[in-house]
Design a protein around this nucleic acid. Structure first.
Lengths: 332, 332
DNA sequence: GGATTTTTTGCAACCGGTTGCAAAAGAAAA
DNA sequence: TTTTCTTTTGCAACCGGTTGCAAAAAATCC
């Protein structure tokens, strides 16, 4: 059906090696030969089969892109940037949705069977053991949005969540809030734990400030909203640091329902700075997570690992910054 | 490094064919043989290489998932559903982001080089010629969200956009609006053209109703917002049918800025019913597009085509329905 | 127990490419 | 022109599997 190397070789009246060489860059072929082969290939509409090639070259240019977060709008941007970044380098993302795959071990095996050149694990909620499983099979892996550790077992690219928590604390202090709270995502997520830890640390030098915390069941609008509705029943803090922007928007909606004004009655600071947060009718003050840099760096690291698989694991952390909008009162 | 078929054969003291057969279902192997091989395979941690296998079986179980829409939140759900649906059937999505790939023809070739078993084109804005390019290479293709045609050249799954436009028109008529408008997405998108066409058709029997239309530059918040800001400078209609929910939210924001009330001063009806539209602080009245059914049906159709590649092209259309929320005044 | 049928197994060719090596061709030097 | 060095080319083995075919083994029949 579709033309193969051999067809081209016959048509051009040369050996298969010659054809192969004209399609592998860096191989030695004379100009005359190249022209002959390219003519025949064009006539037959031939282009080399990557999979067959991978058998000998041991390179598929396939990269597993694994995530379990297909609900947070920020991940659409993540997929956009990853696919673009990989494509620009001639790599191809094989997407794995871990929220349906029952057994993570199964994904590891499957990606192995497809001989992926590397794997990007884009998740802040998957256990480190998952990423490590790839490393054990000697498949280059980078855990984007992974947990920072001073002695990482796999490459991690992301932010220092504890530092982000401290930043939120300092911001609220600077605005003169005396009664603040953390409204986190699921308690089990390490990202939430770390942000809380940093938040509490940042406030520990301020004994005059009251601090409390609670958790939403997941990083979603409804979870944030219902947790905040619950809180409005009891006593409220003056300002809330939310574990995530989507959560924050749910919180804002609950506050509005309670007849309170933001930032007049109550302050809210989010986390992530997803696109929607900048929309004029939301205008959420938030901590910007530098997604673009994180992902570009992840892709860069991945390509570097393809050439040097035993590269020593490193953690690449990017600083966050406050994005001032309209849900926090101005600094004193 | 990693165990191959031959390693297992040697270890088990049998032929390579025997090993191959124990790993292909439907092949004839005695129980005794199977046990011997499985033991050896387990000891060596062997699992067959899909890519090598695909060379002879001519099946990779790879499905190209092509899209050019990585900005509309609805597509996160699209990716979620597609990846789940494909995975559940043992298929693997190879994601292609067409917004970065300069030349679509290049994607066609690339997916061909990876010997994908099929391609899903998830886009309402790509020209039909794109999907057709796969068909010409005899690669099964379904164009999800594609344009309905009575004689489709490729399989199309989605909605009848003209019908949706009519539905919007009828809804506005029923609410007694006398001056209505369509605020579409990019004029070049066939989805926008069809919705407008249906909208105008639906209003053609009502000569007492004034109708106008204009287009946003893309399906995005800012595009909707700035188009609406422009409109507020001139004369406004009583109600707007927007080409998309994201657009609608931009429109709502512009209306708020102009100091007008929804639905008191002005009505808005969106399209898609993305999750965010149901959020209490948005509460957008909109036309629900049955994404879940569309995607499940697309996946189903794709699997059917894998068994029957020359299946006659069909169009599968799903009905939309109005979701009543708070941006349109109640029926008369 | 022997003949016949059915099932299981291995051989060897093949899927579509790449690549080390040695021979052939071409270019440069003498 | 001959010799030497460099570049180009083809041969054949290989990457990791599958599969048609015929021989071997097992099961069934008489």
């Amino acid at each position: 059906m579709v033309a193969t190397l051999k067809d081209v070789a016959i048509k051009a009246g040369v050996s298969t090696s010659a054809v192969s060489r004209t399609f592998t860059d860096g191989a030695s072929v004379s100009d005359k030969m190249r022209r002959k082969v390219e003519k025949a290939a064009a006539d037959l509409g031939y282009s080399p089969n990557f999979l067959a090639r991978s058998l000998t070259t041991r390179r598929t240019k396939l990269i597993g892109l694994v995530s379990n977060n297909f609900h947070n709008p920020i991940f659409l941007q993540v997929f956009d940037l990853f696919t673009k970044g990989l494509q620009d380098r001639g790599l191809r993302p094989l997407l794995v949705n871990l929220s349906s795959e029952t057994d993570p071990e199964h994904s590891v095996q499957m990606l192995n069977q497809y001989s992926v050149d590397g794997v990007v694990v884009a998740s802040s909620t998957l256990p480190p053991a998952f990423s490590k499983a790839f490393r054990d099979k000697r498949i280059p892996v980078v855990n984007t949005f992974g947990r920072y550790s001073s002695s990482p077992e796999v490459h991690v690219v992301g932010i220092d969540n504890a530092e982000a928590g401290r930043m939120a604390a300092q911001t609220l202090v600077a605005r003169g809030y005396k009664n603040v709270a953390f409204l986190g995502g699921p308690e089990a997520a390490t990202s939430t734990q770390d942000r809380l830890k940093g938040f509490l640390e940042g406030l520990s030098q301020h004994p005059d400030i009251t601090v409390s915390h609670s958790f939403a069941t997941e990083y979603s609008f409804q979870a944030g909203r219902s947790e905040m509705l619950r809180l409005t029943e009891s006593d409220l803090a003056e300002a809330y640091f939310c574990g995530d922007d989507v959560l924050s928007i749910g919180v804002l909606s609950a506050i509005k329902d309670a007849g309170l004004k933001v930032p007049g009655d109550i302050g809210v600071i989010g986390f992530n700075d997803m696109e929607m947060s900048s929309w004029e009718n939301i205008a959420l003050t938030t901590i910007h997570q530098p997604i673009k840099q994180i992902i570009n760096s992840s892709v860069e690291l991945m390509t570097a690992m393809l050439d040097e698989p035993d590269r020593y694991p490193e953690a690449r952390l990017f600083p966050c910054r406050i994005i001032e909008r309209e849900t926090l009162r101005p600094p004193l």
